[in-house]
């Protein structure tokens, strides 16, 4: 055992001697078309970090620049497609989203910053994707959209984009949100897969470090749906599933209780960061 302790000292020395490493989020500020974006903010009480960082601060400068300007942001095409869908009649009732909600710039402003919310009907948290499905089925006589299909990501991006710049602010006092938050926290700290890693292994313990070519961020969700330069528009549950798959674990289904709990908890971990949808990431 003594040997281990000695080795530990050597290990510590190695860490200290590792020289300058890319460890921290960059010192930069983001404005999108003149709207200031909160990319760092003090963490809410009970948070493992003191300061919260948007994933934007961990990306290369060229990727960061794509976010600054709506004309450069490749994710804005999805927002435009979402706007077209908003005004499209769907279902047997002959209605579009706009029939009831009119101008999204007014009716949806701030809405995306407050999801997930408590849904009294299902007695579960609901996210924007599931709220869209609820309106489609209950208000419009249309079919629910399957995961990532039929414009689900585009409509979600359009709705979230109406909150651009506004701080993420969930209400955990609604219904049973608190116990879903607890359940989500369990998921976050549970190691999965053959590689035996939890979300926290990468996004908390190793935050700021490089894992191969990737600079590990806090895994914040304020920019979703996000535009990934290597794979295009990416929904939140797609990202969750991808990170879980990378631990060599079975992927939970999108919108499953585990992933809804995780969304609730991880959204709270980004309280106060601006909605950045559609963010650009690598």
């Amino acid at each position: 055992m003594k040997r281990l302790l000695i080795a530990g000292v050597v290990l510590a020395a190695t860490f200290a001697g590792a020289g300058p490493v890319l460890a921290d989020p960059v010192d930069d500020t983001l404005e999108i078309d003149g709207t200031p974006i909160i990319t760092r903010t003090a963490a809410p009480e009970g948070h493992p970090f003191d300061e919260l960082y948007s994933g934007w601060l961990f990306r290369e400068s060229e990727t960061r620049d794509l976010s600054r300007d709506s004309f450069e942001n490749p994710g804005m095409i999805a927002v435009e497609d979402g706007e077209a869908l908003w005004n499209t009649v769907m279902g047997t009732e002959g209605k579009s989203c706009a029939t009831c909600h009119e101008d999204a710039a007014v009716s949806m402003k701030g809405v995306g910053a407050k999801f997930p919310k408590w849904d009294a009907d299902s007695q579960k948290p609901i996210n924007v994707e599931l709220q869209i499905n609820k309106c489609l089925t209950e208000q419009m006589g249309a079919e629910a959209l399957p995961f990532n299909k039929g414009g689900q990501q585009e409509l979600t991006a359009y709705i979230k984009h109406q909150s651009l710049g506004l701080p993420v602010e969930m209400d955990l006092s609604q219904g049973d949100m608190q116990s879903w938050w607890e359940k989500g926290k369990d998921v976050y700290y549970t190691r999965t897969g053959q590689l035996n890693l939890a979300c926290a292994s990468c996004h908390e313990t190793a935050m700021g470090k490089m894992i191969r070519a990737d600079h590990l961020s806090q895994g914040q969700v304020n920019g979703f749906p996000t535009y990934r330069l290597k794979s295009g528009l990416t929904s939140l549950h797609q990202r969750f599933r991808g990170c879980i798959r990378d631990t060599r674990a079975e992927q939970p289904k999108a919108f499953s209780d585990d992933l809804m709990a995780l969304e609730t908890y991880v959204t709270w971990r980004g309280t106060g960061l601006s909605v950045e949808t559609p963010s650009v990431r690598q």
Binding site: T190, T192, Q194, N196, A249
Partner: peptide, 13 residues
């Protein structure tokens, strides 16, 4: 990770 261990995480693929 443990490279020669069956002490893995939950829900191994």
């Amino acid at each position: 990770p443990g490279f020669y261990s069956l002490d893995a995480g939950k829900d191994v693929a």
